[in-house]
Nucleic acid binder design. Structure first.
Lengths: 338, 338
DNA sequence: TGTTGGCATGTGCACGGTCACAATTGTGAA
DNA sequence: TTCACAATTGTGACCGTGCACATGCCAACA
């Protein structure tokens, strides 16, 4: 049995309708699982669809419904650590029947942010997930008077449109761990100051130090990269006036470890190191890195759930329990040697 | 000056046309940079667009033109190394005026692959970039009789729709480096056998060993993860019948190094290790990892260029010079100790 | 028997652009 | 002045789908 009509173009619902001997609207109803359709009719239509290899045209759908079913993802993959969060978001969105369009920030300047947001808006996304939450991104969102809902993966909890991942608690756990081990001279290798989560982690560090009455040294502001951790390490290790360091992400911790090795330090005897994120590699650093784990899969799913609840109208955001990060103690931390 | 009409919905070209006192077609011409438009008219239209914050509706455009300007990206981010290639592809596509929709492979089974391809096809992508080139993916592409052009980031060169990155040469360079250092007992930690590039790297390894007349040991088939490298290392190091290893990617190399450390080996004195990819972290492993670098940014750009040339009609694919990977010698390799 | 109402299906238009073609205006040469 | 022709602009149909509304059908009930 050969297929009959589609000449050059893809078959439409009208083609299906004609061959099935029904109206195009009936076909549309089959597509959208309308309740009142006779089973026999439905079966007939589905059969024709199968024969014709029919696929609904997304553009037409979006046009007539006025909804694109697309979510924009703004990421800064280049600099930042865990790629798994991106995958988690995409999977969650896909599961909910949404499509994901990604825009990458090539650099961190305002211009690049605006360009990326423009790009997303131009494809009429219904919502935006910001995975590289910098202060500037939110400034840009406001300035461009973007009115689609947006959500950020990690945040301080200050903003409404954000998940309550308690970055501060994570940072405090890490800091507390070092203090409990007996360290009293602890540096913090922070992330870029204008990143919301970097700020939160730094605040957590400072708060814990203050509360535990440990004298605090000024944090070093980094850029998330292993390279920076390495360079900062070389600089810091000239004066060995500290015994432990808390890095704001695992990559910087790795770079710092590299610098320690080069300086001939014995890890963790001479230097304790804590990271943040628990990227899959962290367990295989040497020594295996003590770090703070967040469940990015859960995070991604919640993120999408939050966004979708925003999308589906004035439903008040049901804030789920805050996700408490977990300290994973491995071999990179030990009591200070005297 | 307040804006006049858009009631609840976004302004359309007809709204713009009305306010500018022209026809909707003229507005369309402005949008598409049609040559014959009086400058004054164009300026007037642009002004109204600005006032109205007008944005062209992508769905409508796609519908009437019959082209979605969207590229599908099939990736297996979870397992595989360099995220930079994804970013490179997205940037390149964005620059060319295309949008990118990503589908992740959650697992490697055929079902998952088909689901991901379905997802992409449902959004009427014009072409597909496969970033996790497994044999099965191409099987699925054929089986689903998908007729959009597709391209893969890395490949053996067997397929037409692929960039000629010479994976074999890279692998041979790595192997040769170890042989030149004096190693005669070399293991290869390969990637999954059904990954095209894993196979190519393995072939490169075997060819070089054969050609240099070094007795070959059977490669170990891994799964790209650091965890696997670690477990394989523990297993292999029970019998220390080898002095060097060539891992098919940097992550497995990292895991293997971890196992070496645990076994008390002195790196690189007791064991030389070469990786593949040169992820940004590799330079900060301890010792810094000798590995094979590919320029993923160039790769991403070429990949999109190839796909676009396919899209724009029967233009014969202009195969650019093959990209030759470069061996980066760092501290993880040394002559064998006797 | 007529009325009511739910189910199953059909009709026509709207969505916001683009395309083909027609109409109008402007310009230079005969 | 008039005509040919290019430059500029307008008109209406169309892309594929969903929505509002209308219609036909059949069963239940007064």
């Amino acid at each position: 049995m050969t297929i009959e009509l589609p000449k050059g173009r893809a078959p439409s619902i009208r083609d299906v309708a004609r061959l099935a001997g029904v109206s195009h609207q009936t076909v549309s109803r089959v597509l959208n699982d309308h309740p009142s359709i006779r089973d026999s009719t439905k079966a007939k239509v589905l059969q024709v669809m199968e024969d014709l290899q029919y696929r609904p045209n997304r553009a037409a759908r979006a046009l007539s419904r006025g909804r694109s079913r697309t979510i924009g993802l703004l990421s800064a993959e280049s600099a930042y650590g865990p790629a798994s969060s991106i995958a988690a978001i995409q999977d969650a969105a896909q599961e909910a029947g949404y499509y994901v369009n990604t825009a990458n920030l090539t650099s961190v300047d305002t211009e690049s942010i605006e360009a990326a947001l423009e790009h997303l808006m131009n494809q009429s996304v219904e919502g935006i997930v910001v995975i590289a939450p910098q202060v500037r991104v939110f400034d840009a969102l406001e300035q461009l008077s973007i009115d689609v809902p947006f959500v950020t993966l990690q945040s301080t909890g200050r903003l409404d449109n954000s998940l309550s991942v308690d970055q501060m608690t994570g940072a405090r756990q890490a800091t507390r761990h070092l203090i409990d081990l007996g360290h009293r001279s602890i540096y913090h290798l922070a992330g870029p100051q204008d990143w919301i989560e970097a700020e939160a982690r730094m605040r957590g560090f400072l708060d814990e130090m203050w509360e535990m009455d440990v004298p605090t040294m000024a944090p070093i502001l980094g850029d998330w990269t292993a390279d920076f951790g390495y360079r900062a390490g070389r600089e810091l290790l000239r004066r060995r006036d500290f015994t432990a360091i808390f890095a704001s992400n695992d990559l910087m911790a790795l770079g710092f470890m590299h610098a320690c090795r080069e300086a001939g330090l014995d890890l963790p005897r001479d230097m304790s190191i804590v990271g943040y994120d628990d990227i899959p590699e962290a367990a295989h650093f040497w020594p295996p890195l003590t770090t703070v784990r967040q469940d990015f899969a859960v995070l991604g799913r919640r993120c999408i759930a939050l966004l979708l609840s925003n999308l589906s109208g004035g439903v008040p955001i049901e804030r789920s329990d805050p996700i408490i990060p977990e300290l994973i103690v491995r071999g990179s931390t030990a009591p200070p040697a005297f």
